[in-house]
Amino acid sequence: MATSRSSAILGYLESKKNLAGGACGVLGLVLTLTGVAGTYWPVVVGGLYAAGALIAPPERLRPPVPPEPAEQLGFAREDFARLREYAGEVELPAEPAGILAGLLELYAAVLAPGWVAGVLAGDPEAVHALTRAIRTDVPECVDAYQRTRWWTRLAPGGESPERHLERQLSLLREEAERLTADLRETEARRQQTHTTYLEGRRES
């Protein structure tokens, strides 16, 4: 607590308000030394300091810096570990469970440390999409299914929650497959670029 208080004090001492107030306070001292302030010099100096602090422009707040893709990938791995643990504790019908298992295998392959993860880290949009799916989409699918299934047992009828879950997980699987296809295309372009470079070097 003492450290945070010291940081706050140091921050104010370096602030524009303190600097402006100090400049006006110096003006008050000048008026005192020249005899203008008279016996009320403490009030004059304090008032000028306060006036300077009030008219100083507010401090510009620094916008939050988003994490780098590689750092965000580390967060995604932590979220994925929690997701696998959560998925291992829930009971799902055979068909959705199979889709979920395949989806998790795909996530695991892409997130595994190595050159594949390096390619992924070079695509911030892909990292964001993968993080969103792992952190939000998959848990929401499973949680919504469990809640809806509980209500369905009380009041049977309506559309099957299993079909919704199967459809949701299938869509996420398609999204993950598009992501891996894009990464594969990135590597294919890289290979083609190097081939073109070597061919050009031979002809030169």
Rank of each mutant, 00 (worst) to 15 (best):
T3R: 12
S6I: 07
L10D: 02
G11N: 14
K16H: 05
K17P: 11
L19S: 11
A20R: 03
G22N: 07
C24N: 14
V30H: 11
L31H: 06
L31C: 12
L33K: 09
A37Y: 02
G38V: 05
T39V: 08
V43I: 11
V43D: 10
Y49Q: 06
A50Q: 09
A51N: 05
L54E: 09
L54G: 11
I55G: 04
A56K: 05
P57I: 00
P57L: 00
R60W: 04
L61W: 02
V65Y: 06
V65I: 12
P66C: 09
P67M: 04
E68R: 10
A70K: 10
A70P: 09
E71S: 07
F75Y: 15
A76S: 13
A76F: 03
E78F: 15
R82H: 11
L83E: 01
L83D: 05
G88L: 04
G88Y: 03
E89A: 14
P93S: 00
P96Q: 07
I99R: 09
L100W: 00
A101T: 13
L103T: 05
L104V: 04
E105Q: 14
L106W: 02
V110Q: 02
V116L: 15
G118Y: 00
V119Q: 08
V127Y: 08
L130Q: 04
A133W: 00
I134C: 01
R135M: 01
P139L: 08
P139K: 08
E140G: 07
E140L: 13
E140W: 11
T148C: 10
R153G: 10
P156N: 07
G158R: 04
P161T: 00
E162W: 00
E162V: 04
R163T: 14
R167M: 15
A176Q: 00
E177V: 01
R178D: 13
A181T: 01
R189S: 11
Q192M: 13
H194W: 06
Y197Q: 14
G200A: 08
E203C: 02
